[in-house]
């Protein structure tokens, strides 16, 4: 059993999707250029209202839902990407919309808890740790 070692892959500007792929053995479902996208924090959620209320800019969402609404929600709050856990694959329409919105989609076979745990071990923080006491609507970074 490997323990939780912080490998400190996370720099000031975050971590690349390609390092996320290595850590949770994920597959990228969208265009290869998404490999170099940056992620600053991670959120695991199956409720869209929670995603809206608690994520920050450049947050990667891990979720068990594969509905098109996850992509719409991601667009509203500018998520850095979506990871579908437990090997759940979205429909082609969902992937198509994500491509049109330029949103990286990934799939991993790990369940939600394990995938989150592995990313936490990389040094990636949760949204509340990034901006303690921050209220809804505050933006961590400026510009997009």
């Amino acid at each position: 059993m490997s323990s939780c070692r912080t490998r400190c892959l996370v720099s000031e500007s975050g971590i690349r999707i390609r390092d996320i792929i290595d850590a949770i053995e994920a597959r990228l479902l969208t265009q290869p250029s998404h490999m170099d996208r940056l992620v600053l924090s991670v959120c695991g959620a199956d409720l869209m209202s929670d995603v809206l209320a608690f994520t920050k800019a450049k947050t990667l969402l891990l979720t068990g839902l594969t509905s098109i609404q996850v992509v719409r929600t991601a667009g509203v709050v500018d998520l850095a990407g979506i990871v579908f856990v437990r090997g759940k694959r979205p429909s082609p329409e969902v992937v198509e919309l994500a491509e049109a919105e330029d949103l990286p989609l990934l799939v991993t076979d790990y369940p939600l808890y394990e995938a989150c745990g592995k990313l936490y071990c990389l040094g990636l923080k949760g949204c509340s740790e990034l901006d303690p006491g921050g209220r809804t609507g505050e933006c961590l970074t400026s510009g997009t």
Partner: peptide
């Protein structure tokens, strides 16, 4: 709920925003 809605947080989220 299976689509990720129905948490009863929508109106409170609107108010907070």
């Amino acid at each position: 709920r299976e689509m990720g809605f129905g948490a009863g947080m929508g109106l409170p989220n609107i108010q907070k925003s």
